[in-house]
């Protein structure tokens, strides 16, 4: 019945939605930011630990739809160990693909994120897939709220 929609709701998405990875508070985070999608009420609190320009750890808390939860979960896995610049580059590529600005059909460069490429056929859901990423971008900016680690 839902065959057509399987390109959006892949098994990996269901898995990450049921068991989101790195779904925890991080006490020693260097940055923390709240993200909110007013359209659907998705909320995310993102914790990031950056050391010498490298993302050592990312975790999140919050509530959202399957797409936003899976996207956040996958993101926390994929950016760990990468520099801020590499992370920014991956976000740019991911964003261009899900918004349809980049029309490629081979998603190898996205790695694990490729399972979310199907979002491009559902413009109403692009914000769900990018909420965690927008939050991460904001957290990595200098002006982001910094968590007190005292």
């Amino acid at each position: 019945m839902f065959d057509e929609i399987r390109d959006l709701y892949q098994e990996v998405v269901f898995d990450h939605n049921r068991n989101p990875r790195n779904f925890r508070v991080m006490d020693d985070a260097t940055r923390k930011i709240d993200g909110f999608n007013p359209l659907c009420g998705d909320r995310i609190t993102l914790y990031v630990k950056v050391n010498d320009n490298v993302i050592e750890d990312v975790s999140f808390q919050g509530s959202g739809c399957a797409i936003s939860t899976a996207s956040a979960s996958l993101m926390t896995e994929i950016v760990r160990g990468h520099t801020e610049e590499e992370t920014h580059g991956l976000f740019e590529l991911f964003h261009k693909i899900v918004t349809g600005e980049d029309t490629r059909t081979n998603f190898d460069e996205l790695g694990k994120l490729a399972v979310l490429a199907g979002v491009r056929a559902y413009p109403a859901r692009v914000k769900c897939a990018t909420l965690a990423w927008h939050s991460l971008e904001a957290a990595l900016k200098e002006d982001a709220e910094t968590v007190s680690t005292e």
Partner: peptide
């Protein structure tokens, strides 16, 4: 365990139009 936004997208796939969200009544939510 199923977010309204996912319900909305999936029902749409079946031709069913419903609203999913806060309905411009966030204090009610």
């Amino acid at each position: 365990h199923i977010h309204p936004h996912d319900i909305g997208t999936m029902l749409d796939q079946l031709g069913i139009a419903v609203r999913a969200g806060h309905h411009c009544a966030m204090p009610v939510m």
